[in-house]
Nucleic acid binder design. Structure first.
Lengths: 138, 138
DNA sequence: GCGTTTTCTTGAATGAGTCAAGTAAGGACG
DNA sequence: CGTCCTTACTTGACTCATTCAAGAAAACGC
């Protein structure tokens, strides 16, 4: 695990540091964690990390393409390991819970906007809004 | 214009006030404006409105379904008049510009998530990420 | 090891958005 | 038209995620 992340960091041209490995581990085991959750998880291993270090790691790893940042309206930033499967997210309007869903229409159609106003589009992000099972029953 | 908004407010059970009419006018003429932009536009007509009043109006109107709030990752909240056409947005990664795009796959398919984890889904939001014409050339 | 570069620590600042208490305005009803 | 109750607005303080800045520490090529 750690060794895998180790290599991934090197091949992205990033230095291998304890905070970065801990951040990757934290997000691997808690997908959709927010910055505070990551910070808490990282501090289990490394009690002395600063919050700034975690912000820096999250930004560096996101920029390098190893993490994906998701930020539904009204929510703080959340992170997940970037995987190549083009999945999307369902968000609960009540409690903010996030779950993964596969792309409903395949990969290619998602990138096809009918009228793109001259924009060069490189990604289509889909967020499904609704109510999670727990909030439905309550 | 004002008269139309007047009736729309009444039929949503909201009182008709100057700040609300001004907010609706502002967003009608500047789609995708953020809160500060709305505040500035409103103060052209009503120099004395408080920022809190604008926040309250935006929340009330959004809750009543007259406005749609859009908030792409890394951006502050933006608003547009809610129209029934299920359109989506392209966002420029560089400058944050927002433009409308029609739904590429029609209305119904957008709401079909293949595996919904028990969520009751009521809306699908699509954000296309890319680079706007201005930022492409620069 | 040595030195350079990147990353982390520390501490303060920014800014969108919210909270709370009191005043003002909307509008139903007489 | 005037009264009264309710909803909306004003004022001002506050929260909290995120960023900025300067110096210390760690990574890693040589």
């Amino acid at each position: 695990m750690t060794h895998t992340h180790d290599q991934a960091l090197r091949s992205s041209g990033l230095r291998v540091t304890k905070p970065r490995l801990a951040v990757l581990d934290a997000i691997g085991s808690r997908p959709h964690a927010d910055t505070n959750g990551v910070l808490a998880a990282v501090r289990v291993e490394l009690p002395a990390v600063s919050h700034q270090a975690v912000y820096d790691c999250l930004n560096a790893l996101t920029e390098a393409g190893m993490l994906r940042r998701i930020q539904p309206a009204g929510s703080v930033a959340r992170y997940e390991l970037r995987v190549g499967d083009n999945h999307h997210h369902v968000v609960c309007r009540t409690c903010g819970a996030v779950a993964d869903v596969d792309c409903s229409v395949g990969d290619a159609p998602c990138l096809t906007a009918s009228e793109h106003h001259g924009f060069e589009i490189d990604e289509a992000e889909v967020v499904y809004w609704g109510t999670c099972p727990d909030c439905s029953t309550a």
